[in-house]
Design a protein around this nucleic acid. Structure first.
Lengths: 205, 205
DNA sequence: TAGATTGTTAATCGATTAACAATC
DNA sequence: TAGATTGTTAATCGATTAACAATC
């Protein structure tokens, strides 16, 4: 079995989101052309990407949306619910704890942590903020593999190390800093300033 | 003047962030090798990327951190302060309005908007939430080019259209939906579920 | 059937890496 | 000077696109 390039994997969630959107609108069928226009990639690329995993369409008619989104969910392993933790209950952690958009996309927040004694024990949405001191044990015991990191940059590497030691292998990092992680651990970065700085280059005077 | 590939532009903010981090630690000099290890790209790639814009280093000694970060700021046009707006004062908009990480990275939130009468007039951090009805005029008058979109997916395209009509050309989109925008307008997507779904594929059973 | 659209191959295009002369 | 590291060229590698036979 050949290795699938990461750049292809990174597009699949985008396809899946668009398919779910079509489904919510009551559509049952789409084509690589239509899906491609929706997400901004060529029809050829959609077909090439999907062909890595099997044959999901029919000549002449295209793809059944329900069927294809089910296959993508299986491929991405979001046909289940991953329990996650949020570390750092500042404004961003707070917003994520109350975010409704994980539902139906494969994730559920199981626990939230902070190291501030003033915050520990307080409630955020349905969660009681737990002490960061208990974090490692709690994560290990629950077998949690996915974490969202919302602590200040100065603490991020240290907290990431603890998460990894506790068994976490996927980190969604909101801290504005590069994390050094061992092989087998993945990080996705969501620094808002980086997002903005990727666009200003193109703004003409 | 040749066109610089977007993939190179998208790495520059990462380099800049790492350089600022080194600077904060009191370092004055670095090399493509050291910077590459820091951000997870090869030394050759760092040098190739930078060579698109000029010669910023010295053989034998590497790069002056202050000098290189100043050049990157110029290239990315974040050697100034861009005024931005936040639209949608839910939890995410709220968190962004109070975020301290735009300072010194080239951005300042100038205004925040919502269309909920119960929210308009309320205060979030230093901002008074303004009515979305006045948004277009206010953005146009202030000449604002950069916006952060934190409204629900169902409203995102419509609000984006209004922003673009008012002169916005760079949108940081937190709504979990693909935006269709005309040429010349750029969008960066920060959907947390997409970030997580890009990692679960790799998690072994 | 005729039209549409897939999956796939080959061609093209672009990005990354390796290597090294130049030189600090 | 000797060692280190740049900027750049050429080679390699990988990703995208174009084209089309297969077929629904």
């Amino acid at each position: 079995m050949k290795e699938i390039p990461d750049i292809i994997i990174s597009r699949l969630p985008i396809y899946l989101r668009a398919l779910q959107h079509m489904q919510a609108q009551g559509k049952t069928t789409t084509s690589s052309k239509e899906l491609g226009e929706q997400v901004g990639v060529s029809a050829a690329q959609i077909r090439k990407d999907l062909s890595q995993f099997g044959e999901f369409g029919k000549q002449g008619t295209g793809y059944n949306i329900r069927f294809l989104s089910d296959r993508l969910r299986e491929i991405l392993k979001v046909d289940r619910v991953w329990e996650t933790v949020i570390v750092g209950m500042g404004d961003m952690g707070h917003a994520l704890a109350r975010y409704q958009g994980f539902k139906d996309r494969g994730f559920r927040v199981a626990m939230v942590f902070d190291n501030d004694p003033a915050k520990i024990g307080q409630t955020v949405g349905p969660y009681v903020i737990q002490s960061a001191a208990e974090m490692g044990a709690a994560i290990r015991e629950a077998g949690i593999k996915v974490a969202m990191l919302c602590v200040p940059a100065s603490a991020a590497q240290e907290v990431a190390n603890k998460l990894i030691e506790a068994g976490v292998v996927a980190i969604l990092n909101y801290a504005p800093i590069n994390l050094n992680v061992p092989p087998g651990v993945r990080v996705q970065y969501l620094d808002p300033s980086i997002g903005l700085q990727r666009m200003t280059y193109y703004i003409g005077e």
